[in-house]
Design a binder for these strands. Sequence first.
DNA 1: CACGAATTGATATGTTATAACATTGCTCAT
DNA 2: ATGAGCAATGTTATAACATATCAATTCGTG
Lengths: 172, 172
Amino acid sequence: MVRGRRDAAPVLWHRKHDHRRCFEDALARAVSLCRRCGARLTAIRRRVLEVVWQGHRPLGAYEILETLRAERAGVAPPTVYRALDFLLGHGLVHRIESLNAFVGCSDPGSSHGGQFLICRTCGTAAELNDRRIALAIEGCSSESGFHVHHATIEVSGLCPNCQQSDAKVANA
Amino acid sequence: MVRGRRDAAPVLWHRKHDHRRCFEDALARAVSLCRRCGARLTAIRRRVLEVVWQGHRPLGAYEILETLRAERAGVAPPTVYRALDFLLGHGLVHRIESLNAFVGCSDPGSSHGGQFLICRTCGTAAELNDRRIALAIEGCSSESGFHVHHATIEVSGLCPNCQQSDAKVANA
DNA sequence: CACGAATTGATATGTTATAACATTGCTCAT
DNA sequence: ATGAGCAATGTTATAACATATCAATTCGTG
Ligand SMILES: [Zn+2]
Ligand SMILES: [Zn+2]
Ligand SMILES: [Zn+2]
Ligand SMILES: [Zn+2]
């Protein structure tokens, strides 16, 4: 197993987050990764990736579609889904099954389970990739004689910010 | 936390499985559970539960609908979805997010995360409810200051039976 | 029986995703 | 240059999943 650099859980909500930088880094990583493996990050694919990375809230395919349509006429669902398939295939975005939505991958090129903490108030999704969770799942599965291919882990709850907001409302 | 009786992972695929018994037990548990809490397990709701429990393969709402229509004319999607909402609300079935499908709960009335091993060849879904996985997730989440509400855990892979089949094909 | 509440029927529509085939634009051997 | 071959995109239609709305019926209770 690859040594994970992210086990310390650098979670999005803790520090003041420079999303401008976050966004540009993600795009740069994508460009570099595609160049290395000879994949063609075309204009449409790149634009879909940018839209997905506008924030850390998973976006539905039709939300992405609306954004593209505002910029350019005649964009249809297959255009968006094809771009998303490409990005999924190269590990640049993840699909959030419980929301039928898509979010940028915060660490493309690495191991890649895809474990998410999703705030049910503000909608923000933070990617974990914690070894302990992966090991627990691998352990239980192999005890059952099951061979793991992919694990979907999507935790719904309240992020630190929204817990504070809730407390304020309760005290009012 | 409630003391789990199922941590020993009594997984479906290991033993010869008497599904007739499995099915009847599940229905009996549902009837008893509904009686205790005053919920009305009506004919439609009961029938949907039976259909879902025909096997351990998650069924889509429209698959269930087809079965009902074969027995009785004029059944429409809302009928099925309403029954499923009732069953979900009382913990008698689970929704599998990654398949947009529904499967009977193997241990209604207990703690209830809902952790599934889903074979991508035969489609069978086995429910785990393992404390170690729940603890790993709770641990990582709280380290990030995240308050867990619900965890979706759906592991895709190969069940013991289908691993054997694969091996046979490979050797042929 | 009459009442209100819960359930179901019926119709329409919203949302998410893919099938199928035409067109464009680039690469490369001739 | 040229046109066959291929990947990407455009275009239209439809499949698959889910909900809104309101009318009709059923059920338990007084
Ligand atoms: Zn960011
Ligand atoms: Zn939040
Ligand atoms: Zn069974
Ligand atoms: Zn299998």
